[in-house]
């Protein structure tokens, strides 16, 4: 007799994990992100060492090992964002989405499972990458007589960047369920990330002082990386958490509404 018991959200989560982990391109992107991120830090470190003797004294004094170490997150950030996007867009380009929603007609389960799988993988890979970058930087810069960062700050930075990347992947997954196209979604995400910085100088002064901090990117930085790097005054942790939660809720709600209303 047919077993009518609901397999539940756990089944969807395991299914989405199987999908994600069974693609070589996913494993390659995660591995490559870690390697290239650390390599970027190594390259900058090498450049610093090579020119160190010519640095003016005040610049040497201002040199912060930790800030330089995490330069590789530019690479990991973009790669993992694209990974989050393609995890969703490939369902549409292969037309497999029809099967996904036949197996799990409850749209909210598929959305939540994809978000959790991608965010967890992004968090772990980013933490590994950033830890690697900092370890390499400490090694490379050990010869300079600069004070090393204190351990507590290192842990906060590693976790902060990891959480930041994971939250960004939530955005990537939600947005791609709305747009369904990898190119469109990547373009929109890059616009969201760099748009404010590009447009900022052209906006009135009160915007930089009072408005900008409520945007998703700056709020996320205030939440996960307080006072890092030297940024304009942001929100306090509590306020930043509220603002980030509100932004993510908007994107998740848009994704869910799209999934429920639009034809697959």
């Amino acid at each position: 007799m047919t077993d009518l018991r609901d397999p539940g959200f756990a089944a969807t989560l395991r299914s989405e994990w199987t999908k994600f982990a069974s693609l070589r391109s996913v494993r390659v992107t995660l591995g490559l992100g870690i390697v290239l991120g650390i390599a970027a830090t190594g390259l900058l470190g090498w450049a610093v060492l090579a020119t160190w003797d010519e640095w003016p004294a005040e610049e040497r004094a201002a040199f912060a090992v930790l800030d330089t170490a995490v330069v590789g997150t530019l690479v990991t950030g973009v790669l993992f964002l694209v990974l989050g996007v393609t995890t969703v867009s490939s369902e549409y380009s292969s037309r497999m989405a029809g099967l996904t929603f036949t197996a799990t007609p409850r749209r909210e389960r598929v959305l939540a499972a994809k978000v959790l799988v991608v965010a967890a993988a992004t968090l772990v890979a980013t933490v590994v990458a950033v830890a690697g970058m900092i370890a390499l930087a400490l090694l490379v810069f050990s010869g300079l007589d600069r004070p090393g960062p204190e351990a507590g700050r290192v842990v906060r930075v590693v976790l902060g960047i990891g959480v930041n990347a994971a939250l960004s992947s939530v955005l990537a997954v939600s947005l791609t369920f709305v747009l369904r196209s990898a190119a469109g979604s990547v373009a929109a995400l890059l616009g969201l990330s760099f748009g404010p910085a590009v447009a900022g100088p052209f906006l009135p002064g009160w915007w930089a002082e009072h408005g900008q901090r409520y945007l998703l990117g700056p709020a996320m930085d205030s939440l996960t990386l307080p006072s890092f790097p030297d940024s304009p005054p942001g929100l306090g942790t509590g306020a930043a958490a509220l603002v980030v939660a509100a932004w993510l809720a908007v994107f998740l709600a848009a994704a869910l509404a799209t999934l429920r209303r639009r034809d697959v």
């Binding site: 089944a11 989405e16 199987t18 069974s22 292969s94 037309r95 029809g98 099967l99 197996a103």
Partner: peptide, 29 residues
């Protein structure tokens, strides 16, 4: 409760048949 075959080619080309059916089985409990 329902088995459906709609569009047989609508699968991700980079998965094996076994992996494809495995995610599907997991989704359906």
């Amino acid at each position: 409760q329902v088995g459906a075959l709609l569009d047989a080619k609508a699968v991700h080309g980079n998965r094996s048949a076994r992996r494809h059916l495995t995610w599907l089985a997991r989704a359906g409990g």
